[in-house]
Simulated assay, not measured.
Amino acid sequence: MKTVTISGKNVPAIGIGTWHMGDDPAKETQEIEAIRAGIDAGAKVVDTAEMYGSGNSEILVGKALAPYERDDIFLISKVLPSNASKAKMEQHLDASLERLNTDYLDLYLYHWRGGTPLSETINELERLKQTGKIRAWGVSNFDVADLEELWDLPVGKNAAANEDLYNIETRGIEYDLTAWQAKHDLPLIAYSPVGGLHNELKTTMLENKVVQEIATAHGVSAHALLLAWVIRDGKTIAIPQSSKAQHVTNNVKAADIELSEDELRRLDKEYPQPDHKVPLAIN
């Protein structure tokens, strides 16, 4: 199983995303079973945020994780830009911890950039790390210019990860961001690794003939094959979301798929690498 080292911990490269989960009480049991199925299949990383359902996702995650040893899970949540100030962040972190029924986060991410000066946000994240309420902090939806600004801050290099949208159909970050992060030993967390839930444009990934042929050759679904592609470099964690237990189990098993150089070339031909800078994709 492919793994990635993040904040000093070695974790499976396929985690569990929870965006759009926790909002429908009728689906609670099914969604809890889905998260637990992923953990039982070997997943360690569970990603949520205070934004998701205005806290409903964190509540769901807290319930789902109740039977497990806390130290066996790498738990991530995120703070909204509007709450990322010295005056507000700790109370919002405390609220997230209460909803998650835990006394610490393994990783706390600044969800995206807002009006608070970056230095203030990062200094507060670093202070909260010293309290023990978070083991590490990172950022999300940052591009190269943002990361360079972060790296220039006195404690900016303490960032443990950057979470961005990334999949075979949306490869813009490969132009310069992935190389920058590799050079600076900053792991990438890929959200929407098989496309977003509410994309306005229909994805072609799952129906692509070459994707399907390679998936068939490996005896896996197109979905699993695309996840294996996202984590191919050994420096990326993918956090697909699903409310179906079997689907989540299959997602986790994608970390066992090894793609050949020929298969990667065929996929590159279908979905070419970027040859110019494009705006950071955000879903």
Rank of each mutant, 00 (worst) to 15 (best):
D106A: 01
I14N: 08
T29A: 15
K44G: 00
V220T: 07
N56D: 14
A95V: 01
A41Y: 03
L97D: 08
W229S: 09
R127T: 12
E126D: 15
Y175N: 11
R99E: 08
D164E: 12
I257M: 02
G138H: 06
I32C: 10
L226I: 04
D71H: 10
K2V: 07
E98W: 02
G132Y: 06
P67R: 09
D268S: 09
R171S: 05
R266G: 14
N141L: 00
L60M: 14
E33I: 09
L93G: 05
D23W: 03
N283K: 13
L197S: 13
K157P: 01
E213F: 08
F142I: 00
K277Y: 05
E200V: 14
W137A: 04
V46G: 07
I39N: 09
E126N: 15
R266L: 13
G219Y: 04
K244E: 08
H92D: 12
K253A: 15
G196P: 03
W137E: 04
L267M: 10
H111A: 06
V194Y: 09
K44T: 11
W229A: 14
R171A: 11
V220H: 07
V220L: 06
M51W: 05
G114D: 03
D275F: 11
L128A: 12
A182W: 00
V210M: 09
R127H: 11
G195C: 06
K253T: 11
K157T: 12
L177E: 05
F74G: 01
S119A: 15
K209G: 10
V139E: 00
I76Q: 09
A160Y: 01
G219A: 05
M1C: 05
L60W: 09
N83Q: 14
S54N: 12
V278P: 06
L280H: 11
D23G: 13
P193I: 01
G22I: 07
A160P: 00
K86M: 04
R70A: 04
N208P: 06
I134E: 02
L100H: 03
S243K: 14
M205N: 03
D164C: 07
Y108F: 13
S242W: 01
